[in-house]
Amino acid sequence: MRKFGLFAAFVLLLTLPASADDLLKRGSRGEAVAELQAQLRAWNLPVDPDGVFGPRTETAIRAFQRENFLPVDGVVGPRTRAVLAFNLRVGGPSFGPLGGSANIGIGHKALQQQLQANNTIAIGTVAAQYAVALADSTIAGVKAARFMREGTGATAYGFRALEHSAKAGNNTAIGDSALWHSQGTGNTVGGYVAAEGMSRGDENVIFGRAAARYRDNGDHLILIGNRAGAITSNADRTNLIDANPEDDVGGAIAGDRLVGIGHQALEEFLGSDVLAAGHRAGRSLIGEAGAPLRSVFLGPDAGHTERQKPDAANSTAVGADSWTDANNQISLGNEDVLQVRTWGVFTFSRAYPASGEGVPPGSLFKGDDGKLRFKADDGSVVSFSGE
């Protein structure tokens, strides 16, 4: 058992004289003894919470006194009681199979039952509670990192941040319920319920209220903005509240390699390989779970109109309220745009039959004879060479 010292603020308490009425010793019984035993158990000392000061309780008191440089007499007076109540522990837990080194716990039950933890700082009520093998970590907030197991290099701030995040490592979670029930690694998450219920997502950057919430198995995501990349449809959330730490409580299976920046950007999108930047950009997209679209949407409400093809692949829409209604399409601007200006030239790399077969109405195209043509809405084709 490793020894550790007390802080100077408690030196005066250690010099208080003992009164016979204040003493608890072998043979004492009652509520005061039960409270004493609860304190000893909080320090992970093996005692029975039976309200009887018996041999096991006396042995635990002697061990506690010895480790804290108190007179070892097995009697609980003001000095021993003051140290038992002292909740700031430096140097890590001293008793039981806790292990670890250089830990600092500040607050109610901070570091409680923290197993095999190294170089950890836990601040707040039940911070790091039951965190097994948590190393190189900073935990702050009510229930922060509660039940997290085998996580290393984690930083959690906020109520329920990283709670139930079994096997999660090298994560930074900031916000109420951020990364709650998640099991991924290498994630940086900030925001109220951000990435909540997102199981096994790795190497993601997620910021914003409810960003990526209930998105399952997402890797290599950059989602920034309130509800950016969030999933609400098809999400099984019935057992989130009281879930076992090792339960799979993720939501809808969604895709990877997304960049969504803006309020509700890519919200409800299940596919992969899309860049959407702008307020509600890409919000009308759905896609099949994990299917790569390889599409780009830039601008406020780009890809968020009734005309937007929900699974448009290899498409690009640029401009406010722009959309793509087919695969393999590039759309510039919206119906209010009156002019498109370029300082360069347009190059037609692909040739179509001179008849206009396969060309959408209202389009310019290069015929297979090398001449520039226009296909009207009625299907007729006009050549710019006068044919």
Rank of each mutant, 00 (worst) to 15 (best):
R294C: 10
A317W: 12
L298Q: 12
E267F: 08
G278Y: 08
A312Q: 04
Q308V: 05
I261E: 01
I261R: 02
D247N: 01
A277F: 11
V249M: 10
G255K: 01
A254P: 03
D301N: 15
A289I: 15
E306A: 15
G260P: 07
G260E: 05
K309H: 10
L293Y: 12
G255S: 00
P300N: 14
P300G: 13
I286V: 14
A265L: 01
A317T: 08
P300S: 15
G250C: 02
L285K: 09
L270S: 07
T238V: 04
D301W: 13
G260A: 12
G255A: 01
P245G: 00
A313G: 12
E268H: 08
D301M: 11
I286T: 14
L285Y: 10
L298S: 11
V318W: 13
L293P: 04
L270Y: 07
A243M: 00
I261S: 01
G319S: 06
R257S: 06
E267H: 04
R280P: 00
A289R: 15
R280M: 12
L258N: 07
H304K: 13
L270W: 03
T316P: 05
D256H: 14
R257W: 10
G251S: 05
L258C: 01
G251Q: 02
R257E: 02
H279N: 14
L275S: 06
R280E: 13
A291T: 15
G271T: 08
D311N: 15
E306D: 15
L240K: 06
G299C: 07
V318C: 03
L285Q: 07
V296S: 07
N239G: 09
R307S: 13
R257D: 09
V318G: 07
A302L: 08
I261M: 06
L240Q: 10
A276E: 00
G251V: 05
R257F: 11
I241S: 03
D311T: 10
N314E: 14
T238I: 05
D247Y: 06
A302D: 11
G278F: 09
D273H: 09
G278I: 05
L240G: 03
F269T: 00
N244T: 03
S295G: 09
R257C: 00
G250F: 02
E246G: 02
G278T: 08
G287R: 00
I241D: 06
D256G: 00
E306H: 12
I241C: 04
A291N: 15
S295M: 09
G262Q: 03
I253C: 00
L293H: 14
K309C: 07
Q308T: 13
V259R: 04
I286W: 11
P300V: 15
G250P: 02
A291W: 13
V249W: 01
Q264P: 00
V296T: 12
L240I: 09
F297H: 07
G260H: 06
G282A: 09
A265F: 05
R283I: 05
G262W: 02
G282T: 06
V259Y: 05
A312C: 10
S295L: 08
E288H: 12
E268C: 04
V318M: 11
A289S: 15
P310Q: 12
D248I: 12
R280L: 11
G287A: 08
H279A: 09
A243G: 13
G319W: 06
G255V: 03
R280V: 11
G303P: 09
A302H: 11
